[in-house]
């Protein structure tokens, strides 16, 4: 087996516990696995911002401007250089299979999140984007979780978000349109939580039409 990320031969680690268990299919080498660096305490209880005690400034601001429409966000990894590189290769170069290196960790985090059983919704991509990338990253993640999702949204304009400043992004116009309301609690799934604006745009529309609670699950924060 080769490491999905660096392509070197994986040398299986043999310890007493792995010795007795049936061999698992390793997807990444020990060195790459070590760099995954899951988010751990302390983090903001609202948005999972790593290395932060208590509710962070951004979350406080959201609470002030709109009584917050988002229950909470759970993220798995800090969006550091290592993960940025993987994301660039996965999403922008289109190396679909790379996301498998996160599978085990995000499945575990998903089970512990308390989101299981809620209606899963993936963030939609514009037609233009999906043509160029060939896949929707949120759906890829949901596939890894073994869940099924719906997308009751449509994009009214496309996602050239990263080009704008942070402040701009926090107050930009809602690019989504809700086509179908839901009365069940939902969890929105996407790859990255940056300002939380995208997710709150969707959450606001859902709440307005009677959805009891909206949370989100993102791989990176």
């Amino acid at each position: 087996m080769r490491c999905l990320s660096c392509h070197t031969e994986i040398i299986p680690e043999v310890t007493w516990s792995t010795f007795w268990k049936p061999p698992t299919k390793d997807v990444a080498c020990l060195l790459c696995m070590e760099k995954l660096n899951e988010i751990s305490e302390p983090f903001c209880p609202q948005c999972h911002r790593p290395d932060h005690k208590g509710v962070c400034k951004d979350c406080q601001l959201w609470e002030k401007t709109h009584t917050d429409v988002l229950e909470r966000n759970v993220s798995v990894f800090p969006y550091n250089e290592f993960h940025k590189d993987i994301v660039a290769r996965w999403k922008y170069r289109g190396d679909y299979v790379l996301v498998d290196i996160y599978k085990e960790t995000i499945q575990r985090k998903w089970s512990a999140s308390g989101f299981k059983g809620m209606q899963v919704i993936h963030v939609p991509l514009s037609e233009e984007r999906i043509q160029e990338r060939g896949f929707n990253q949120a759906e890829a993640i949901i596939g890894l979780l073994g869940e099924r999702s719906i997308s009751p949204f449509e994009r009214t304009h496309s996602e050239k978000q990263s080009k704008r400043g942070k402040r701009d992004r926090m107050y930009s116009k809602n690019p989504f349109q809700l086509i179908e309301a839901t009365s069940k609690p939902v969890v929105l799934v996407d790859d990255i939580y940056t300002t939380g604006r995208t997710i709150r745009h969707m959450a606001a529309l859902l709440k307005e039409t009677g959805c009891p609670s909206v949370s989100s699950f993102t791989i990176f924060r």
Binding site: M1, D95, Y96, V97, Q131, G134, F135, G143
Partner: peptide
């Protein structure tokens, strides 16, 4: 073989 992979291709 490890330098090929499959994906659900939306296109």
């Amino acid at each position: 073989s490890y330098m090929f992979a499959k994906m659900p291709h939306a296109t």
